[in-house]
């Protein structure tokens, strides 16, 4: 085996560390993307019996965005096993308790329920803020593209840019400015 082939072999089977910024991302949409990197579905050598999954580091999981009224509509079910042990926790209550739990459960549910799933989940790191431990940070070599654009607030845009932006609506002639 030549040196080039050996390096190619090494690069093919090495685990890549990806980073994903969850700011303003829907966890249920982004779980389908994260799942592919975790399981190694994006690689041409993928096979279910082939351990080729990568590591994904999710940051800013506190800043995820849910669609419409899902913060108060989506409930997470848990049963302790005892009679009367069922609880339904709303998404905003769960996010108050643990800001990493929603994205973790979303990725877990996006994958097929087999024996490999628990081991695949071990390769997912989720951090509520932007701070990552140094030993995790030094491994990261790739960034996963965000699905949704992060919206810009109007008060964060400079005033002169708002004034100069092309207008579609003009006031009628007899309008009193307020």
């Amino acid at each position: 085996m030549s040196a080039v082939k050996r390096a190619q072999q090494w690069a093919t089977f090495a685990r890549t560390w990806h980073i994903f910024d969850c700011k303003w991302q829907d966890p249920y949409e982004s779980a389908n993307v994260i799942k592919k990197y975790l399981m190694g579905l994006h690689k041409p050598i993928y096979h279910p019996m082939n351990d080729c999954g990568d590591v994904v580091v999710c940051i800013n999981s506190r800043e995820i965005a849910l669609r419409g009224d899902e913060w108060r509509q989506r409930a997470y079910f848990h049963h302790t096993g005892y009679p009367g042990g069922a609880t339904w926790t709303l998404a905003w209550e769960l996010h108050n308790k643990d800001p990493t739990m929603i994205i973790k459960k979303a990725v877990y549910r996006a994958m097929k329920g087999n024996l490999q799933r628990r081991h695949t989940m071990e390769r997912l790191f989720i951090y509520p803020g932007e701070v990552i431990p140094e030993e995790v940070k030094q491994n990261i070599t790739n960034q996963i593209r965000q699905i949704r654009l992060v919206p810009t607030r109007l008060d964060h845009i400079p005033e002169e840019e708002v004034q100069k932006y092309p207008k579609v609506m003009d006031y009628p002639e007899d309008y009193v400015l307020k």
Partner: peptide
């Protein structure tokens, strides 16, 4: 308060 403090996005198709 409550659920209002978290980020929410909307679908224009709705």
């Amino acid at each position: 308060r409550d659920y209002k403090k978290f980020n929410t996005y909307f679908d224009e198709k709705t």
